[in-house]
Structure formats: structure tokens, C-alpha cells
Computed example of a mutant assay.
Amino acid sequence: MSDHVGTGPAVLATAGLTWRIGNATIVDGVSLDLRAGEFLGVIGPNGAGKTSLFNLISGLRAATAGTVELLGHDVTRLAPHRRARRGLGRTFQASSVFGSLSVRENARLAAQAQHGGSLHAWRSTKGFRAVAERADECLAAVGLSGRGEAVAGTLAHGEKRKLEIALLLAGSPRVMLLDEPMAGVAAEDVPDLVEVIRGLTGHIGGAVLMVEHHMEVILGLADRLAVMHHGALLACDTPDVVMANPVVQEAYLGEEL
């Protein structure tokens, strides 16, 4: 868990967020708030609507009803790239790095996108230096300083996850959405990745919302747990309270807690 649960204004808030396809309701009126410094875990059985919720928050899907507020601004109708510019970063279940480029080249591209413009020959060396420094800072934050020259496609899956997080950090997000970062990561690499994720709220000065099926991982990281079931929010409280909730336990019957 974080050293403290965020107590300031909400950096991310959803109200009645809903997504319907025909007669099927995929996300059903979810209202959540996330505060600076907080780590909020999202759990639920397979098909509960967790990734769909992330898709609505990040703008990949248009909400049927409800709102999304980011840093006090309504972003419900904004495109994904405009939400990213306002401070929202997201990873996906599938790896999303440039496999043919080096680790450092990946990080520099992400830093360049944040810095603005292109690094052509007529640009000042100050711009090059700022991008390079930012890239190196982000790699250091995830423990990849010594892997800069490695080809990204040759990294172990756990290292690819770290690189994806470094690319997000380069965009200076205030809110970070992590969608099952442990998926496909070898068991021996999980503790190291957990420690990288544990430090994220400090690096971004904001908050983290994470979907994860590894209960031991999420229980060790989260200040609060939000439980989804059939697209709806079943409970949201501290991990101890949530895991003792008989309604949550019933929803998980036949699933691994």
C-alpha cells in the first residue's frame, strides 16, 4: 500500500458511467473517485467489465451515459489523445513497445512526444538534451538504466512491462491506468515489477488505478479495492473490508480470491 491514502481533491472521478451495446449493459452506472497519492485496485471475476471500464475512462469507448472528470475537468467527450495530454496515461494487457528499437530509443520517442516537435538537424542541442535526460530519468525510475542499448523485442516480459511504464512516465501523467500489468510475467519477475509499480504515485505526483487478477499483488499495493461484477460496482473500500464482505465472497464463488 501507499504510505497514505490520498485525501485531497479527486484527480479522477466517474459518475454513473455506463456502456450499453444493444440490450446488453457492459458497464453499469459505475461511480468512482481517485485521489492524489492513492492506489486503487479494480478486481472482479472474468467478464466483470474491468477493462471495459478502463476503455471508457481512457476514451477508447464512448459512454452511453455518465461522466468522466480528470483533474476537475469533464473529459467525457474528449478523444483518447486529448485525455492523455490532460494527464491520463494507460497501459494495455498486450505489450505495446517498438520491438525493433532499443530500450533507450523507445524512451526517447515517448519523451520527444511530450517535449513537442521533432528532433531534426536544425533544432537546438538543448531540445535534444532535454529529451535524452527525460528518457534516462524514466528508465531509471523503472530500473532499466542498464538496459538502454538492448533491443526492446528481446526483453523478458517483465522488462517489457517496465518499459511500457517508463514510456507512460515520459508523458508526465497525473493519473495512470494499469491494465493487468502482471499478465504473462514470469513468477520470479513479479516482485521486482511490484516494487516499480509501488513507487509510481510518488513519481507522477498523482494516483494509480490498476486492474489485476493476482490477488496477492493487488492486496499488497492497493489503498482501496473496487469490486466489479456483471458490469456494476459491487463494493469499494479498504482491502480488509472488501475481502470480508459476504456479497463479494459470493460473487467470487468458483473464482480464486
Rank of each mutant, 00 (worst) to 15 (best):
E255V: 03
G184S: 15
A226L: 00
L71Q: 14
I21K: 08
T67L: 03
E256G: 10
E216Y: 11
T76E: 04
V131Y: 01
A150I: 02
D237R: 07
Q112T: 02
L155M: 14
H229M: 05
F128R: 07
L70G: 02
R85T: 00
A110V: 04
K50M: 10
V142M: 07
E149M: 04
M215S: 05
S118C: 09
G99Q: 13
I21P: 07
I197N: 04
G66E: 05
L60P: 03
I26Y: 04
G16V: 07
L167I: 13
E256I: 12
R20S: 14
A130D: 01
T238F: 06
S2A: 12
G22Q: 07
G158P: 14
A36V: 02
G206L: 11
W122T: 04
S31M: 02
R108K: 15
A36D: 06
G206T: 11
G206F: 05
I21A: 11
L78G: 01
K50F: 14
F39N: 00
Q114G: 01
V211P: 05
L12V: 13
V103Y: 06
A150V: 13
E38R: 06
N46E: 04
A111Y: 00
D223G: 08
R198G: 09
L17M: 10
K126S: 03
V190N: 04
L163S: 10
V103W: 01
A94M: 15
Q112R: 05
T51D: 11
A36M: 04
D189G: 05
L257E: 11
E195G: 08
G202K: 10
L219K: 13
T125Q: 04
G72E: 04
G206A: 13
E188F: 10
R129A: 12
V175W: 04
V211K: 13
S31L: 07
F54Y: 06
L88D: 06
G22L: 05
E105R: 12
A135E: 09
L163M: 10
I218E: 07
V196R: 14
E216W: 09
F92P: 14
V75I: 15
I204H: 05
V27H: 09
H73E: 15
F128L: 01
D33E: 15
V241F: 08
L234A: 03
D179T: 15
P239W: 00
R35M: 14
V142Y: 06
V5C: 13
N245K: 10
L168V: 07
E137H: 06
G148Y: 05
L109W: 06
D3I: 13
S58L: 12
S172V: 05
K50A: 11
M215F: 14
N23I: 12
V30C: 02
T18S: 02
M215R: 00
I197W: 02
D33G: 02
V175D: 09
L109A: 09
G171H: 05
P246W: 15
G41I: 08
E255Y: 00
